[in-house]
Design a protein around this nucleic acid. Structure first.
Length: 588
RNA sequence: GACCCCGUAGCUCAGUUGGAUAGAGCAUCUGCCUUCUAAGCAGAGGGUCGCAGGUUCGAAUCCUGCCGGGGUCGCCA
């Protein structure tokens, strides 16, 4: 247990003792009591708001509760100074030994330092990317991909059994358009001059390989059926989807992203079953499906709007703005009906924790999806939808034109190839997901403090370089050597060292908070702070040689400092691993 | 018209889910490389947290109403 958790437990125990002694009401709920690191060192190391939040329910003065708590805590070992301040904070200064212990904590836990069990091993499904298999991914997809992947890492770190899933929209009109576009490329591959790609079809060159593959596989057999779309379309479609998906998987792999499950929309209604019909029937049995009319949508030139009675899902019962259509006028199911069936399937597979990562253009879809999950699970499952806002691609401050027509469309793959995986991943996580992001191709490869990727990686590289240098000065002071792992950490008394220790102690709390909030960016910012403290301590050694990590004439002190450096490197590496960014041992 | 996101230093953004005197980076200015990587560090200046109310011991954070920017609305996917 880290210091923070220990102190929390000790304060809870102290409050319980006060209750037992009759100095606090026995039925007082202690949930709201928090322990936080202080911002101002003059307020000590930690502070608790216990007296203030308990004052009202206990019907006592904050000051009286605080005084009682101070007396309890001051008597405990390791509490150097405990005092009441401000409106009723209890400020706590701990003996350095309490902080120094974090080095051993980190060493013992290794890559699991900061991991928690808040997920209790429960299964959780993160659905992300889910880009239509009709072409290459763009940068916006990349943001959702990186975010979803890191969130999955984070939640696994927090004790969930995580499944990463991609919903393949391989049914519906757009994949038919894909098939028609591919068919044209097929004819082209057979030597035909196809001229301009007609409007409404996908013009991209990326379909040429699909055409070539079809030509190789089928010769001119499909061409003979050209007038009978129902004959060739399913074959071409299947080939095109397969190849598009393969391309997408490759692009994702370039970002180190690998989904465990690719769930096919088409599969919902294939093989003699119809999960959409089953889902609708289930909702109908719950009285949530009815025939009715919708109002004409506003803010659009809905010229083709047709007022008619249709089959609706009563999503307004679950917080949605309007009820949602399930059937199209041609008798087919809406996309939403299929998506409900898909989520029904997730629930049937036993998931009770669902997270979907959406692009900004799907914000309007959130309420109905949550309504659907509530209805389908009888409120027993939770669905959190994280929206990644738009990415603006810039180069040196100038927007990069994104036009498919003009051929200046920038694919995700091109960006990965240009700037590399680490800068993309880190930069996309160095921002809250619900804030728009400017991604500057020139800036992300800049090697300066303006670029937090290199800043954090550099700290890790520096830490490891210390060990390389130490090996020259001392034998037996390698990272895992017993003289380092068993070093006397009470020698770590410099303010900068204590600052690092406190930050290391904070990591488990940061990781937990990030996991609970589904906010991986907190890890990125924490790492930036930790790296900053590490760089600062490093540079202090320039002016004050006695603060250098390696002290040629003091083996014990060097061992203690190396243990601290090792702990810093470990936490940086762990944090970067959650973000999916490499922790290099060297940067030159 | 409705819903969602954003609004914090000149710029780009954090702000530990309601805590104490609101923080970083960039940019500007002043310093630090003959020994652990200067891709680094130290310091200075810079603020009506969009506006107005409300909730309470306490609000950048929660509620209401405005203002500004972006996104969305359909039997598309």
């Amino acid at each position: 247990m880290t210091v923070l958790a220990e102190v929390e437990a000790e304060i809870a125990a102290a409050l319980k003792r006060l209750q037992q002694a009759g100095r606090l009401p026995g039925d007082l709920a202690l949930d709201a009591v928090e322990v936080e690191p202080t911002k101002d060192p003059r307020h000590g190391d930690l502070a608790t708001n216990a007296a203030m939040v308990l004052a009202k329910p206990a019907r006592m003065k904050p000051r009286d509760i605080a005084d009682a708590l101070v007396a309890e805590l001051a008597a405990l070992p390791g509490y150097v100074k405990v005092e009441v301040a401000g409106p009723g904070f209890v400020n706590i200064s701990l003996a350095p030994g309490r902080w120094q212990a974090v080095v051993a904590e980190v060493r013992a836990a290794g890559a699991t330092y900061g991991a928690s069990d808040i997920g209790k091993g429960e299964r959780l499904l993160v659905e992300y990317v889910s880009a239509n298999p009709t072409g290459p991914m763009h940068v916006g997809h990349g943001r959702g991909a990186v975010f979803g992947d890191s969130l999955a890492n984070l939640l696994a770190f927090a004790g969930y059994a995580v499944t990463r899933e991609y919903y393949v929209n391989d049914a519906g009109a757009q994949v038919d358009v894909l098939a028609r576009s591919a068919f044209l490329r097929y004819r082209e591959a057979l030597g035909e001059n196809i001229g301009e790609i007609p409007a409404g079809l996908y013009p991209g060159d990326y379909l040429k390989p699909v055409g070539a593959a079809l030509a190789q596989k089928f010769g001119d057999a499909l061409l003979k059926q050209a007038n009978d779309e129902s004959a060739w379309l399913p074959v071409v479609r299947a080939q095109a989807i397969e190849m598009m998906l393969a391309m997408i998987k490759e692009d994702l792999a370039a970002l180190d992203i690998r989904h465990e499950v690719f769930f096919s929309e088409r599969a919902l209604t294939e093989g003699g079953k119809d999960e959409i019909a089953e889902t609708v029937a289930e909702l109908r049995a719950k009285g949530l499906v009815f025939e009715g009319r919708l109002e004409r949508p506003k803010g659009h030139d809905a010229d083709d709007w047709e007022d008619r009675e249709q089959t609706l899902f009563k999503s307004t019962d679950f917080g949605d703005d309007v009820d949602r259509a399930l059937m199209k006028s041609d008798g087919g199911y809406t996309y939403f009906a299929g998506d409900m069936a898909y989520h029904h399937n997730k629930l049937a597979r036993g998931f009770r924790h669902l997270i979907n990562v959406f692009g900004a253009d799907h914000t309007g879809y959130i309420k109905r999806m949550q309504a659907a999950v509530r209805a389908l699970s009888d409120g027993k499952a939770d669905l959190d939808i994280k929206v990644c806002q738009l990415v603006r691609l810039l180069r040196g401050g100038e927007p990069v034109k994104m036009s498919k027509r003009a051929g200046t469309f920038v694919t995700l793959r091109e960006v990965v190839d240009e700037v590399g995986r680490d800068p993309i991943r880190f930069m996309m996580l160095y921002r809250k997901n619900d804030a728009a992001l400017d991604f500057d191709l020139a800036k992300v490869v800049e090697k300066s403090k303006d670029n937090p990727v290199f800043y954090v990686q550099y700290a890790h590289a520096r830490a490891l370089s210390i060990f390389r240098n130490a090996a020259e000065a001392f034998a037996g002071l390698g990272r895992g050597d017993s003289d380092v792992t068993g070093a006397d950490t009470s020698l770590l008394t410099d303010d900068g060292e204590l600052d690092l220790l406190r930050r290391l102690a904070l990591f488990p709390r940061v990781a937990e908070g990030a996991a609970r909030a589904h906010e991986p960016h907190r890890i990125a910012f924490y790492l930036s702070d930790l790296a900053s403290a590490f760089h600062a301590q490093w540079t202090r050694g320039n002016d004050s040689p006695h603060l250098r990590f390696i002290q040629a004439n003091d083996r014990n002190l060097t061992a203690a400092r190396l243990a601290l450096v090792g702990a810093c490197a470990q936490v940086i590496a762990t944090g970067l691993a959650i973000l999916g960014v490499h922790a290099p041992s060297e940067m030159r």
